[in-house]
Structures are given as structure tokens and as C-alpha cells.
Computed example of a mutant assay.
Amino acid sequence: MSVDLGLVRQMWRLMEPVHALVYYAPEVFARFAKLGFDTETRWPSYFPLRSAPLGAVGPELVAATFYSFNPAMVREHIPAAWRTATPDDVLAARRDGVDEALGTLTTAIDLREAVDLARRLVDGVSTVGRPLGAANADLPWPDEPHLALWHAATVLREIRGDGHVAALLTAGLDPVESLVSFAGVGAAPRAVFASRGWSDEDWDAAARRLVERGWLDEDGSATDAGHAGRDEVERMTDELAAPAYRALGAEQLGRFAQLVMPVTMAVVHTGLLPRQSTLGLSR
């Protein structure tokens, strides 16, 4: 079936907040604190929370799959996280935290039809070459509708993320350059990308490489070539994510969006999610 790539991107924007709740919900942090993690800042729980489907893997694999983070930052938290809790403990904590957080937000929303369509979307994904997406797809489907919807959003999100890494590699952008070039097109201010752990020297060196490549002006803003390059990265990301959405078709995607929108808005209205992020959702 034919589905416009613009619709693929819209579906990502719709589902991303549903997935992202896990990184900000107090209910999730409370369970991680019980496991022994420092929850005063986001990162000690973030790295195990997101990588746990891969198992008790080392920092090199986590840095490779997360891509944009400074590997030194990853090494601060992995493998130390697995000395605090096992991946199974982490998966249980994130599931139980999302169960409480999202369950509270969706008590008045009938999710049965949305979950049916979400399952069909996930059935249409290709996990080939997508380690984080595949690891999450390997996890069992929850019985509770709100958790099943969150599981689907997570699988689709990580499938897309793996494809985005492939698009960045194809464009010849290393992890720092991927951030600098994205800031150059106005995705978010430079300060937002500092969360990825790169030094000013790392950032400035990447900017110089992109100036030499013709992607950035000296002031750090994207040139026409830089805009075109980033547009192609996003187009390829959408294209790599598209098969699942094409399998469902535009009409049923429209119905799915209608059913999921109340959940997305309920998450957004909590005020827990940041207004700006490295994903460029506010663009």
C-alpha cells in the first residue's frame, strides 16, 4: 500500500511521547530508586533502562547502538548498572513504572482497537540490522492494553532509531557531527545537545569538519548543502521505517492516529516531557 513518507514522520511524532514517558515518569524513577539507582539525575537510570532488552551488555555495544552519546559518558554507567540490578530487574521496573504512570493517564480511554492496530504495525516491521528494535520486539507483549500500546510505541521507536543510525552512517556523519549538523538546521539549541556528553572541544572540532565539508557556515548555521544533507538523513530514516506503516495503509493509520491522539495528549499535558530535545520534535 502507498503511504507518504510525511505520514510516516507524523506517526513517529504521535507515538514518541507515549514511548518517552518511561524516561521522565516519577513512577519509573521510584522503582529504579528501590533497585539502588541514583535518580537525582536522569542518566544513571537512562542507560540501563533503554539497553536492558539487549541484556547485560558492555559500554561499547551501548555506545554503538545509542550512537550520539560520548562513549566516555556511557562507560560511567555501563557496566556499573548491572552491578546494581540485573537486566530482568530493570525490565520489570520499567514495565511496572509505565504500568502505573500510563495506566493512570488512560483509565477513561478504550485502547482495545488501538492495540489491535498497534500489533499489526509491529507485525509489519523488519528487525534486520536493527539491534535495539529487535531486542524490544523479542520481549513478550503485555496483557494490559496501555502497556501493550507502550510496548508497540517502544518497538517502533527503536526500529526507527536503528534506521536513523544507518542513515547517519550513510551520510558520513560521526556521532558528534550528527548533533552539530542537527543543531545547525535549528533542531534545538546547542545547549540541549550538551546532554550527550561531548566537550566544547569535541563540538568545535566537529563543526570545523562540517565547515570544510560545506555543511556549515562559520557561525554554525547550516548551508544549503547542510540543509539538503540533513533532509536526506531524515528522508532515509522515514523510508527505512516505512514498511510497517505501508503494510497497514493510510486509512487505517488515520484511524490509529485518531485512537492514539488522546493518549499522546494526556502524556504531553503532564508537563513531564522536555519542550526541546535532541530529537528535534519541536521543529
Results as ranks from 00 to 15, higher is better:
A225E: 12
P71I: 13
A134Q: 12
A228I: 03
E16W: 04
A241G: 14
F182W: 07
P59H: 08
V18C: 01
L14R: 00
E60I: 11
V268S: 04
A56E: 08
P48D: 04
P175E: 12
I109L: 14
H151A: 06
L117A: 12
V267W: 07
A118Q: 13
P71F: 14
D96E: 15
A80Y: 10
A134F: 05
S178P: 07
P189T: 02
Y23S: 03
D138I: 06
R157S: 10
E239A: 15
F256I: 14
R9N: 10
R213P: 10
V22I: 12
P262N: 11
P48W: 09
V98E: 15
F32L: 02
L149Y: 00
A33L: 13
V57T: 13
T86P: 07
D238H: 06
R246E: 15
S178E: 12
R31S: 03
P175H: 04
R235K: 13
V260Q: 00
A137T: 06
A63P: 00
A64L: 13
G163R: 00
V18K: 01
G280A: 02
G124C: 15
R157G: 09
A92S: 13
R275W: 11
V192S: 11
S2T: 01
G226W: 08
D162I: 06
G163T: 02
D4F: 00
V185E: 02
M1S: 05
T65H: 07
R230F: 12
A64T: 15
P17D: 08
D143E: 05
S126T: 15
F32P: 11
G254V: 12
D88T: 12
I78Q: 09
W150I: 02
M265P: 00
Q252F: 06
L281F: 14
D162W: 12
D89A: 14
W198Q: 00
S221H: 10
I78N: 05
R9E: 08
V8P: 01
G97M: 09
A85D: 11
V176Q: 01
G184D: 00
M1D: 02
L105H: 14
V90C: 05
G249V: 09
A167Q: 05
D162Q: 05
L281Y: 10
L14F: 09
D89G: 11
E234A: 05
A250T: 14
L259R: 06
S45M: 09
Q252V: 08
T84A: 02
R112P: 00
Y46G: 11
P243A: 03
D143Y: 05
F69R: 01
